[in-house]
């Protein structure tokens, strides 16, 4: 067993174990912490696959921002645990059956006969001066520049939508009053002012 395989199995064990602990934990905050551990394991596996930029992005964006947002919401909402866990085990046998069938089918389809090392050979490791970020940036800013711009617009829309959804009062909101607009009179709009112009003889 090579060193790569040892690393892969260690990270896979923690990935699967922390994911199982996440879905079966009764406390939502503990579930978030287990999900953080499984994201770290996933990032380690992505580094094994030489996707360093995406692994660091997963840790920075997901663990750093999204999971903290989850924790913030969980702590902000006072969640009653007893009502949420009333039907905890009701659908567990059906879920386990569906999952077992899917795993068996996927293992048959994706097993070593179709995607083994003798079918898809492992590529050679890159040299030490290979930069994953440079390769991704060359693709992202040339071929995929329009999808990149669309992703930026999507994030802007997400910001605006989430702020608009949770805004409660009408503080500092610019809005138009239809009734005042309809009932407006001419004297409200135009004000005639008589101005006396100085004549030339006064100077």
């Amino acid at each position: 067993m090579t060193f790569d395989q040892i690393l892969f199995y260690v990270f896979s064990f923690w990935f699967i174990a922390s994911s199982l602990a996440m879905i079966f934990s009764r406390n939502a905050a503990k579930a978030v912490l287990f999900l953080i551990l499984s994201f770290f394991s996933a990032a380690s596996i992505w580094i094994l696959l030489e996707a360093e930029f995406l692994a660091i992005t997963l840790i920075l964006v997901y663990v750093g921002a999204v999971m903290v947002l989850f924790l913030f919401v969980i702590k902000m909402l006072n969640i009653d645990k007893s009502t949420l866990r009333a039907k905890f085990t009701g659908y567990l046998p059906l879920g386990l059956l569906v999952a077992a069938i899917i795993i068996v089918e996927m293992t048959l389809v994706l097993g070593g006969n179709q995607f083994g090392l003798d079918i898809v050979t492992a590529p050679a490791r890159h040299a030490a001066d290979y930069s994953n970020i440079t390769v991704l940036a060359m693709q992202l800013y040339t071929v995929y520049v329009y999808p990149f711009e669309l992703a930026a617009v999507l994030l802007l829309i997400a910001i605006i939508a989430s702020i608009t959804l949770v805004q409660r009062n009408e503080l500092n909101r610019k809005k138009q009053s239809i009734s005042e607009q309809v009932n407006v009179q001419a004297k409200d709009r135009v004000r005639l002012v008589s101005i006396t112009t100085p004549s030339k003889e006064d100077k």
Partner: peptide, 27 residues
């Protein structure tokens, strides 16, 4: 070396764990 099927089966297992999580935590 780790083959491609190992990674694919790992992600299939994680996918199914997420699916079971949706079943058991549906409230």
């Amino acid at each position: 070396m780790v083959s491609l099927s190992d990674y694919l089966i790992l992600s299939a297992i994680i996918f199914c764990i997420g699916l079971v999580g949706i079943f058991v935590n549906r409230t």
